[in-house]
Design a protein around this nucleic acid. Structure first.
Length: 140
DNA sequence: GCCAACGTTGGC
DNA sequence: GCCAACGTTGGC
């Protein structure tokens, strides 16, 4: 199983909205970046991801699961853009902030730190474990 | 609100 | 195919 990170401005699409969608999940639509799209194409049903709030929060607030593989993005006619569906799994007991991530040398190589603008990114197994520990949240 | 970083677009 | 111009993102 692979791990990922999904970034969203809470004013556009928040963790609470994601939770409200329940087990049905929701399209991770609106991505107009090739790198991000390519990562979504690599995702499999059952892969897990962090849900990150950018802007004001700047923190990982929850864990999501991919519940549909990449398919055309329903918000555009442009067939270049695809997206997966994700559903909320559980919230973080304690949100893990960008500050914490930057201070932890085990997370120095995270894409979130190295390329802060990429909205969908891969997370390594080790990074996943470290962040779940920091958030005192079950990692499976 | 500013600005650096980065991706995309379009003219050549 | 290059690169300048432009738009967007997101941390500060």
């Amino acid at each position: 199983m692979a791990y990922w990170l999904f970034k969203s401005e809470p004013s556009t699409w928040s963790w609470d909205q994601q939770v409200a969608k329940g087990a049905e999940g929701e399209e991770w639509d609106g991505v107009r970046n090739y790198q991000a799209r390519n990562f979504m194409r690599q995702m499999a049903v059952g892969d897990r991801g962090f849900f990150y709030h950018s802007q004001k929060d700047k923190a990982i607030v929850g864990i999501v699961e991919v519940c549909a593989e990449a398919h055309p993005d329903s918000t555009t006619e442009d067939e270049r853009w695809e997206c997966v569906d994700i559903k909320a799994v559980r919230p973080f007991t304690i949100p893990v902030t960008l500050d914490q991530i930057k201070m932890d040398e085990r997370l120095d190589e995270m894409v979130l730190v190295k390329n802060s603008r990429l909205s969908v990114q891969p997370v390594s197994d080790a990074e996943w474990q470290v962040i779940c520990d920091l958030g005192q949240t079950k990692s499976d």
